[in-house]
Simulated assay, not measured.
Amino acid sequence: WYEPDFDNGQRGMRWFSATVAPIPGQQQFAYTVMDITEQRQQAESLQAAQAELLTSTTQLDEHRQEMIKLAELNDFLQASRTQDDAVDAITELVSPLFADCSGAIYVLNETGNLEAITHWGEHFNSKLLFAPTDSWAIRRGRIHWVDADHPRLLSDHIERNAETIEALSVPMMAHGKLQGLLYLTSPTPGLINEDKRNFAQTVAEQLGVSLANVGLRTDLKADPVHDLLTGLFNRRYFEEALEREVYGAARQTRNLGVVLVDIDHFRQYNNTFGHDSGDIVLKTLGGFVRRTLHSNDIAARYGGEEIALLVPDLSRDEVLLRAEQLLGGVRHLHFEGTEQTLDPITVSIGVAIFPENGMDWEALVQSAEMALSRAKVEGRDRIATVQG
């Protein structure tokens, strides 16, 4: 028999090893019993240490991968020549940094609201456009973190539903000015942990500085092809591009649409609200048009209050549908940046299609101008074509 010694006060489960062997020449057996509790404990401690080391190694590897991806994002942002370049880089490279979460990157648009330039994840639960005052993070000027214990502190731009367990908002600042907002959310408790929150803050700081620097480079760069007020291409660039596109469309038997957009009664608007307000209208309209463009479209400020769009590879009905979307969208534009309340605007739109309305670029523009004149004569705030 074996009686453990518990005089040391360490009571609890103990482990033993028993060996049974026959005694030669005798019908008896020898029993050997060893207390292996200490060896067992040492083995378990070693296993725990190995598991902890593996976890630490995995975390270090994940952190290293995050830093590699962040460095890649930074390289693209530093090489960006325009805001559009920066937006493309952010769209492609930010979501993989937070692939296990849902989220979005917001930037300040021309009207001073926060607009999502990219969002991802099946649990995304925020508006794509909202006022800065709808965000606790923006109002407080600091990172805002909400978990399941504080649901009432969710910002107004977040949809309240049962899936919203954690939400993180980080302002993107540079030189003391707001550039945008990084937003993350997850229905899984603990997923947006302290390490992820710290990493999100690092990403937001880098995005804010990069966006500000891209904007500064764009402002300082002499741009021979863009209109500074609207951000659209200028007339010369548009006509050169249209000439090339008509030549290519003729060779490849493709359709091509030209859409001319003119602000209704703009001179009267300027006389009523002032030229500064007129500039705000043009800038806002230019921003709206840019946001509606497809990848191959070209938009330009063609005259004082006239904007031209080149829309390739669409049928006549598809070009008219795009024009209808522009017409309706303009009616709902809001203008900010002035102390007075500005009236909404409407536009008249003329549409011409290659090749049926002109066989060269000049004839095509002339047809679009004729259609635009017809829209004005028929009462404005409408679309017209050469045929009717």
Rank of each mutant, 00 (worst) to 15 (best):
I36P: 08
T37G: 13
Q39K: 11
R40A: 15
E44A: 13
S45L: 14
Q50T: 15
T55M: 15
T55V: 15
S56F: 09
Q59G: 11
R64F: 09
M67Y: 11
I68E: 13
K69S: 12
E72I: 09
F76I: 09
Q83V: 14
E92D: 13
S95G: 07
S95Y: 08
P96E: 07
P96F: 01
F98R: 00
A99H: 09
G103H: 00
V107T: 13
L114Q: 00
L114H: 02
I117H: 04
G121S: 05
D134M: 14
W136L: 05
I138Y: 01
R140P: 00
G141K: 03
I143P: 04
L153Y: 08
L154I: 04
H175F: 10
H175A: 12
H175E: 12
L181F: 03
S186P: 04
T188R: 13
P189M: 06
D195Y: 15
F199V: 06
Q201K: 10
T202E: 14
T202W: 05
L207A: 01
G208E: 06
V209H: 10
V214N: 02
K221T: 14
V225Q: 12
H226R: 13
L229I: 04
Y237E: 06
T253P: 09
G257I: 06
D264Y: 07
H265P: 07
F266A: 10
N271I: 02
N271T: 07
N271M: 09
G278L: 00
I280R: 02
G286Q: 06
F288T: 02
R291S: 14
R291A: 10
N296T: 14
D297W: 04
I298K: 06
G303W: 03
I307N: 01
L310A: 04
L310S: 05
P312R: 05
S315H: 04
E318M: 10
E324T: 09
G328R: 13
L333H: 05
G337D: 03
V347I: 08
G350P: 01
P355N: 03
P355W: 00
N357H: 11
V365N: 04
S367G: 14
L372P: 05
D381Y: 08
I383V: 07
Q387I: 13
